[in-house]
Design a protein around this nucleic acid. Sequence first.
DNA 1: CGCGATATTGAATAACATCAAATCCTGTGG
DNA 2: CCACAGGATTTGATGTTATTCAATATCGCG
Lengths: 251, 251
Amino acid sequence: MHQSCLADRLGRFLHLAEPELRALAALEDTERLVPRGTMLRAEHAASREFYVVRRGWMYSSILLFDGNRQILSMHLPGEFAGEVGLAWEKAPFTITAATDTVVRVIDKAAIRGIVEDQPRIAALLLLLAQIERVTLADRLASIGRTSAKSRVAALLVDVLRRLRAGGEPVEEGIVLPLTQEEIGDATGLTAVHVNRMMRHLTDDGLIVRSNGRVRIADEARLAGIGSHVDRYAAIDLSWLPPRRGEIDDRA
Amino acid sequence: MHQSCLADRLGRFLHLAEPELRALAALEDTERLVPRGTMLRAEHAASREFYVVRRGWMYSSILLFDGNRQILSMHLPGEFAGEVGLAWEKAPFTITAATDTVVRVIDKAAIRGIVEDQPRIAALLLLLAQIERVTLADRLASIGRTSAKSRVAALLVDVLRRLRAGGEPVEEGIVLPLTQEEIGDATGLTAVHVNRMMRHLTDDGLIVRSNGRVRIADEARLAGIGSHVDRYAAIDLSWLPPRRGEIDDRA
DNA sequence: CGCGATATTGAATAACATCAAATCCTGTGG
DNA sequence: CCACAGGATTTGATGTTATTCAATATCGCG
């Protein structure tokens, strides 16, 4: 993977043309290392940039008045982080590294050029934003309307499937680099109760744990318990503009 | 308001140029009446279009395997509904009319032309998608990490402020056209518990109720209880492409 | 080895759900 | 205008789930 990370991300959805690749390659600037536990960007900090995760796990969270924290989404290798900041000068979320992380920094102002010159990329960015909305909505339904056990199951299946989509090896088990505290903040539970639910899932033979490593023993059943829907299965790209200079032969 | 509804929505954020207005006006097609309680679009139905609400309230929801429902967001007059469908051929959410409703139908394929010809509109659509994501994230934090009372308070303040932003008269109280069952589905509570929380809020003098009408008596305090943040306060438009044919004098 | 962070388990408590019954409200037909 | 039906609201009693508090065990790391 020597091309632009942004191109890697977008290339998962469609085959990018040469000019598109060149435009994307021109964007990327610095690479940044973020050690485990540190914030890449705090809520209310300036948000002049967003990120593509290259290695490691990050997550976005909101801090409430009372000090409680809600983790909103995980950012796994290959995925974006911080694009919501597009709409504000001050970041609405905190982005934290769950592991030692490497990110690429993309200047927000650069999006202007992309939108002007590469309409297909612009449409794809719009599409990606919708996918993220639905992901968030699924999590909302999980937290609002399912049991503690289901919520933990849903989280596990979600990260498993996204890691797999990103090309990571997962069948032999994954290292889940989240503390139970963090899983709790993501699922709306306490760390103590997360622990109990993980024990239940283990006792039921759905997952296998050994020093930090988690293997999903029965993905289908876990997905059932978590009411998990794989949204990436049937993305509709038919409405995107055609590649520049090509005949649009879809209609 | 004789111009395009889409233009009304987008025009809240920036001043649209003539060619942009013309491009938007060309999009709108049919107007549709949706009676209270009926679905404008069901989950898994074809999603070749999205909507701008003209009159009335709608909401999007997800149905879980066990029959439980989570209401994800309200769609108030002037707002969009169903744009998440952009990314799929089959709608991920159900859209239901909470009141008798009038919507405008916009064909999804028409977005292609807009993105190709009106980059500033494309960027604005991308920005709006981010705003919706943050709105959803705020609701997620509310449901995941606050008490039942806070969640109901947050919902009330949210709709109040959005109605106000849409130019509706709210200071004399609003008719809340949601059953307690629906409020429950939106906040992750049961209808019974919603009722008790509304009683608490009433007893505390935060809201005043009289046959279906709700007046927010103490918006600031209610917003505090609900941990409500007004995200519309400081939108950043600086990265948008300039209007066509104009000098970009912002940098 | 030993320290701090994380995980695990138990017991008591609080928050919310469930079940059930009564009341209110709205629209409809006589 | 009234009666009535059906949905929505309200309230109480009880059950369940998840939280809180507390104590112990384990892990990772210098």
